[in-house]
Design a protein around this nucleic acid. Structure first.
Length: 471
RNA sequence: GGUCCCAUCGUCUAGCGGUCUAGGACGUGGCCCUCUCAAGGCUAAAACACGGGUUCGAUUCCCGUUGGGACCGCCA
């Protein structure tokens, strides 16, 4: 019966796909794949004033970039209003829902008052027994909650959670503009789409007993629930823009790899022994709610960055070369439409992989493979492009010029000869060359750099350094 | 304020009564490697919130306290 599992990710398009939503989507996706079930994408856009098509597009983009592919959908709740109204009518007919004529202003005032008096903040049910409509008022429809007894939520992560029905209030299921509200549509859709497991953030745990009552009123089977712990910012409050980038696509722009983000997100709440790095297959194979924790997790950008560096290190140079191109354009190292020799780029990328934590960093480090240094780092220049350094550079230049075996090994031999002849350390010549070629004191191994830059360019840059003279 | 959830190093976590002088990872410090920077290796500092029980024995089970979070909307 494993094939019967159906889960869904149900974001509301009132913003971009954010870190928390992505983690929820990821756990749904993993659970579906692990159980050979179906993963459904449903857009909860019943709040027509805040939902936009742009955000729907943004969410889809985020999911796509992360590789969280869905089997059905995206469905939009705004396409299903007729369905919800049918269910509302049915509940009214059966006396399980009723019209409420209280205005939102009145309601708000009562809420304030209750809050101030320290009384429970909930609807008092004053329209429950109304027989006649109130003239001139378009009513909302409220769901009639049971007032005694208990509702038990069986949660795959939290176990048994019990709620006293006295604390459940008659929530609005149909607004005065005849649009349905979340707590109702979510139930109708989960039933309609035959969702077997509701996996969402634990900020929904308190809504669950209300939803369970609606399943019952509708006469439907109750799905299994899994309420995932929240992701918090460094100050332990709910993750938000104040904590930095929260949109998934912002991480793409900052040069993160989707696999790295996925790996980071999955470890926020889930673990598998001491393992930190997982392939997607491993994730799918090992995922289980038994190893999902209950405590909220603080989002730690440093660890994400480390993971990203690990993924960059493990990527193939060819793939990375492909991925870095847009970032080279951003850095103005390449122009849009420039043709690059991908084989050559891959070689250059290879030297920088273990030195770059993001694609942005990689692109920026790649600069000196493309262009002569615009200037020399001042400190580097005084330290290494002095008389002695320049003299060694001149010697190196002529050896290099006559070198036929222009490879890493051939280049190394030349350096060895110079080092031996002068009885100096390799650094004494390597650093001046590094400054001449890259403009600074930091780069991959100098033989590799010289090889990749090529003889002509190398000699030109050495000549430029010599021409610039000692500072 | 009410309801619900949660609680191991700064952070993510392992631990599912004895194996814990509490393990791993990020970050931080030191050392090694070394043409610079990284990467890598080794190493150090760093936690079971507190108080009661239960038990021969609690980080692990129960209760309370404290602390944190979420929800309480004609938002989702």
């Amino acid at each position: 019966m494993a094939g019967g599992i159906r889960v869904r990710f149900a974001p509301s398009p009132t913003g971009h796909l954010h870190i928390g939503g992505a983690r929820t989507a990821l756990f749904n996706w993993l659970f579906a794949l692990h159980n050979r079930g179906r993963f459904i994408l449903r857009i909860e856009d019943t709040d027509t004033t805040r939902s936009t098509d742009e955000y729907i597009e943004a969410i889809i983009q985020g999911m796509t970039w992360l590789g969280l592919d869905w089997d059905e959908g995206p469905f939009r709740q705004t396409d299903r209003f007729d369905i919800y109204r049918g269910y509302v009518d049915r509940l009214i007919t059966e006396g399980k829902a009723y019209y409420c004529y209280c205005s939102s202003e009145e309601l708000e005032a009562r809420r304030q008052e209750a809050m101030a008096l320290g009384r429970p903040v909930m609807y008092d049910g004053r329209c429950r027994g109304l027989k006649e409509p109130v003239a001139g008022v378009t009513p909302v429809v409220r769901f009639r909650m049971p007032q005694d007894g208990h509702t038990i939520v069986h949660d795959l992560i939290h176990g048994v959670v019990e709620f006293d029905n006295a604390h459940l209030d008659d929530l609005i299921i149909l607004r005065s503009d005849k649009t349905p509200t979340y707590n109702f549509t979510v139930v109708v859709d989960d039933v309609d789409m035959r969702i077997t497991h509701v996996i969402r953030g634990d900020d929904h745990l308190n809504n669950t007993p209300k939803q369970i009552q609606m399943y019952r009123a509708l006469g439907y089977e109750i799905p299994k629930f899994s309420h995932l712990p929240m992701i918090l910012g460094a100050d332990k409050t709910r993750l938000s823009k104040r904590h930095g980038a929260t949109s998934v696509m912002a991480y793409k722009e900052m040069g993160y790899l989707p696999d790295a983000l996925i790996n980071y997100l999955v470890r926020l709440g889930w673990s598998y022994g001491d393992q930190e790095i997982f392939t997607r297959d491993e994730l799918v194979r090992h995922f289980s709610f038994e190893s999902v924790g209950k405590a909220a997790a603080v989002f730690n950008p440093e660890k994400l960055l480390w993971l990203n560096s690990q993924y960059i290190m493990k990527s193939s140079p060819e793939t990375l070369a492909e991925q870095v191109v847009p970032f080279l354009v951003n850095e103005a190292i390449l122009a849009e439409g420039d043709i690059v020799d991908k084989g050559w780029l891959a070689k250059a990328v290879k030297t920088l992989q273990e030195r770059s934590k993001t694609l942005v960093e990689l692109a920026s480090s790649l600069r000196y493979y493309f262009a002569d240094p615009a200037a020399y780092d001042e400190k580097a220049r005084t330290k290494f492009l002095n008389d002695k350094g320049l003299q060694l550079l001149a010697e190196l230049r002529s050896s290099l010029n006559e070198l036929h075996d222009y490879t890493h090994d051939g280049i190394e031999k030349i350096f060895s000869a110079i080092v031996e002849r002068h009885g100096i350390k390799l650094g004494a010549i390597a650093q001046p060359v590094r400054v001449a070629l890259t403009g600074g004191t930091v780069s991959p191994g100098i033989f590799e750099v010289i090889e990749i830059i090529g003889k002509e360019t190398t000699i030109r840059r050495i000549d430029k350094a010599i021409a610039a003279g000692p500072e």
